[in-house]
Write a protein that binds this DNA or RNA. Sequence first.
DNA 1: TCGATGCTTCGACCGTGATCGAAACATTGC
DNA 2: GCAATGTTTCGATCACGGTCGAAGCATCGA
Lengths: 224, 224
Amino acid sequence: MREGPDIARIASLVGDPARANMLNALMGGTALTASELALEAGVSLPTASSHLSKLTDGGLLTLASQGRHRYYGLAGAQVAGMIEAIIGVAEAVGPKRVRHGPRDAAMRVARVCYDHLAGEQAVAMLDRLFDRKLLLRDDSQIRLSPSGAAHFAALGIEIDARARRPVCRACLDWSVRRSHLAGALGAAILDKIIAEKWARREKDSRAVVFSPKGRQAFERVFLA
Amino acid sequence: MREGPDIARIASLVGDPARANMLNALMGGTALTASELALEAGVSLPTASSHLSKLTDGGLLTLASQGRHRYYGLAGAQVAGMIEAIIGVAEAVGPKRVRHGPRDAAMRVARVCYDHLAGEQAVAMLDRLFDRKLLLRDDSQIRLSPSGAAHFAALGIEIDARARRPVCRACLDWSVRRSHLAGALGAAILDKIIAEKWARREKDSRAVVFSPKGRQAFERVFLA
DNA sequence: TCGATGCTTCGACCGTGATCGAAACATTGC
DNA sequence: GCAATGTTTCGATCACGGTCGAAGCATCGA
């Protein structure tokens, strides 16, 4: 009975259906208000409020008060990564192996993971960035190379390396089961994809759908 | 309230302290009997038995009956990866940021993750295997290259690619936060490290401690 | 065949935590 | 100020699930 980190505490936070629905909704990356999350979870407002304070106390959510609205969001990419890992297991052991609808397929190709891109496209992108030496695998981190910094700057993506948030971070992809790029750079790239209208967010889903021209542009810039 | 995979079900399985302790114990990779796990979790045998059937029903554990002993083990590397991800979050949000004892430090360097090696050494190894083109990042998988197959065969590690189990698989490392190598090859490498006595398992811990000569040998073979 | 060992099932107990209505609190717009 | 809106706190209810002792199965060794 040696004691490690309190994984039961964290897991039990995710282990309630109402809270799991809230976290799932927040995987889209946008912060939501308490009432939106209550609707999403299918519980009353008081119940939702209670759950939300547990999640924030537990360190899984952050809270940003703006006037009378209170926006809840995931506490970081690591939390998002954990939830993706749980989703992966749930998919694998779930009773419904054979339910790959069209929306499911789109999710596997490209989706939002908190604030960055995930799915086959994202994994392929990270691979190419390594191949082109724009990113370097350091001892225990991913780093932006000088040529990489120049490359992204030319695209209008400039990252302040001194900010608190790490520039590059690996995040395990539940569908592909390999890492994709998170961190400030990962978020900036997703921002650009949306801003350039290369792709749009599917309504009420984490799926990201590229337009034909958008896909070409994305491949030219990131998969070349 | 759109429905995804049942992540609450999976998370709540991990969310009970007794079950979490059991899973943690099984992260060492060796299957354990019900009585051993009861001891590990600090509960009575009937209680443990009840938990264990829930975990197996839930798909997190596999059961191998051998005579009157019943050995429980993790259901796969994906489950192990999920638990590592939860451990990572628990460490990050836990109240004890500054408690890196010596055992903790050893865990970060090298430890067992289910049946393969994890920690800084394991992440560095995977990086070098890519650099040396012994492994290839394919579209959505890690593959063994022809030269890699030859290389490992020369070390006495031969993997049957037609077996049900994937040869190579990525597994996210909770301490380093990047991928290390799982799958049949990852397991075989750990086997070799132990068999060659390059390192030994720390008692009652997942830590793997290299001997001075063993470290040299490991670095020569896998980090060169 | 018989006791010993390992494990599960049964039954009963009990505490934690999820739930919601009502009321209190906070902020904004008028 | 004062109503309207968004959110939390309080209080009470209730059910689910964790817990263990006792008994029941199964397997092994002699």
